[in-house]
């Protein structure tokens, strides 16, 4: 069996989509506890309440956790596909590995923090919000903002190499010449 990094990205994308579909089907055919997607507030119209978070996960267990792990890996692989094959080098793979590992770390911290809150009913409040919520606001957003920053700094090396830009300009000239000739 080939190591993962030797597989074509599209095959990994396809496999991850199937994993996500599998988890989704598992959730869809699982029992649905009362209030799985919230219940109306008992006295205030238009508001819903979350209720018992532990009960909500009772039938599907850690399915959401594995779902998001697969989504993060899928997102990373798709972004990797966007870099021309001949520009993908060891440094790029290292950067992507670190970026995806960080995104997974954030997700683990978020979900484990949420599970701890469900178990104890206690949570730390930082910057005005509970810790797991901070991981969501700053971590989930920030873990892919890193890829946006990478785009800026590595633009000429991976995303529009001067040689590729020259090759494109050459193609434009060729196509214009062909159009004029016809």
């Amino acid at each position: 069996m080939k190591p993962v990094y030797l597989l074509k990205p599209i095959h990994l994308v396809f496999a991850l989509l199937l994993v996500i579909a599998g988890i989704t089907i598992f959730v869809l055919i699982s029992d649905v506890p009362a209030g799985a997607s919230g219940t109306p507030h008992p006295t205030i119209a238009g508001l819903s309440v979350g209720g018992d978070g532990t009960e909500k996960l009772s039938a599907i267990g850690k399915a959401p956790y594995y779902f998001q792990v697969a989504v993060i890996l899928l997102a990373g692989t798709l972004l990797y596909m966007g870099i021309p094959a001949h520009r993908r080098d060891r440094l790029l793979r290292l950067c992507f590995g670190v970026g995806i590992a960080f995104a997974l770390f954030v997700w683990v911290m978020l979900f484990s923090g949420y599970e701890a809150y469900l178990a104890t009913g206690q949570t730390r409040v930082l910057f005005g919000f509970p810790m797991p919520t901070n991981w969501m606001f700053w971590g989930i957003w920030g873990s892919f903002a890193i890829f946006d920053v990478f785009y800026f700094f590595a633009f000429r090396r991976y995303f529009l190499h001067p040689d590729d830009e020259a090759a494109f300009n050459e193609l434009v000239r060729e196509m214009e010449a062909e159009r004029e000739a016809t």
């Binding site: 209720g51 978070g53 599907i60 809150y117 009913g121």
Partner: peptide
């Protein structure tokens, strides 16, 4: 409620 200000809100994780 508590669930509303946690990361998945009242609608839940999925």
């Amino acid at each position: 409620d508590g669930e509303d200000i946690m990361p998945f809100g009242t609608l839940g994780a999925m």
